[in-house]
Write a protein that binds this DNA or RNA. Structure first.
Ligand SMILES: [Mn+2]
Ligand SMILES: [Mn+2]
Ligand SMILES: [Zn+2]
Ligand SMILES: [Zn+2]
Lengths: 148, 148
DNA sequence: CGCTTTTTGCGACTCAGTCGCAAGAAGAAG
DNA sequence: CTTCTTCTTGCGACTGAGTCGCAAAAAGCG
């Protein structure tokens, strides 16, 4: 399940530097894991992968870095319908948002970019006088292979 | 923040009965709490309120009943942007879905029913051959009172 | 280098949600 | 209304995600 690439990858570090945020070994390890991920990772998977780069990285540093990236609007947090436990999944936030569809039978995650979704967000901002910082549309149901 | 009422309330019990599901004291207590709720409740709030009806209700019965209602498609589970911890919120599922907007400054939850949202779901089902059972759109940002 | 500020690892902790089990209640059938 | 099966419950112990306070370490800047 490849993520739609609508921006030059590999620049999470730069984006943090531009905002005057300190760069450290553990952070570099975690950022590189998120940047090179080809699927949605949860915190413990990010920890495990980050440790292959810098073995000393701690679990709480992963959570703290994820918080930082969320606050900076550089990653999105997903539930993916809690198909596997109660944890959350993370992915880099790129140009336009996309929708996540989770198949409740086979677990497949499908991503979808939609112009209608973009209009809907604009409509919300206009009609509700709400300034959107993050929008998450997650759908559960049956994928094309699993529906009867 | 009143919930949009697009169906006759008070019928959760009947809907379970129609599906041949056993009715018990604890269940009745929990269902009545959910049915009469005027805002989004988390599991521990549901437990506390249910205990005022039937003092013996246990925490795990609340979780088991919430699971049942989710599986039956009678309630929706929400994150509300995790403004207060990691728990989930529940609300009865009525005729049409609505969008939840959470203000990251004041915590206000705004609900919004949108025709565009309904079209978006139809479009998803058509274009992705995906059979939608549950759709959750949650937005975080600043409400009209809090935006500068 | 020396100083200030931020970040880190660690370990202990909280809190949401789960599970196995034996006892209890629902409902169907007679 | 009794019997029988099946489902549900309370309980208590448990798991796993995420948090926190702290003292040590590292970043960045002049
Ligand atoms: Mn969640
Ligand atoms: Mn609602
Ligand atoms: Zn599937
Ligand atoms: Zn607000």
């Amino acid at each position: 399940m490849p993520l739609p690439q609508t921006e030059i990858p590999g620049r999470l570090q730069t984006q943090l530097a531009e905002r005057g945020i300190r760069m450290t070994g553990p952070r570099r390890a975690i950022l590189s894991v998120i940047e090179t991920a080809t699927r949605h990772l949860d915190a413990s998977q990010i920890l495990r992968k980050a440790r292959t780069v810098d073995a000393s990285v701690d679990r709480s540093t992963v959570y703290r870095t994820l918080d930082l990236l969320k606050r900076q609007g550089l990653i999105d947090e997903l539930d993916l319908m809690h198909l596997n436990g109660e944890g959350h999944y993370y992915e880099r936030k790129l140009g336009r948002d996309h929708i996540h569809m989770a198949c409740l039978r086979c677990g497949k995650i499908t991503e979808f970019v939609s112009r209608t979704f973009e209009s809907l967000k604009k409509q919300l901002e206009r009609d509700c006088h709400f300034h959107i910082l993050v929008a998450r549309l997650e759908v559960g149901g049956y994928c094309s292979a699993c529906r009867r």
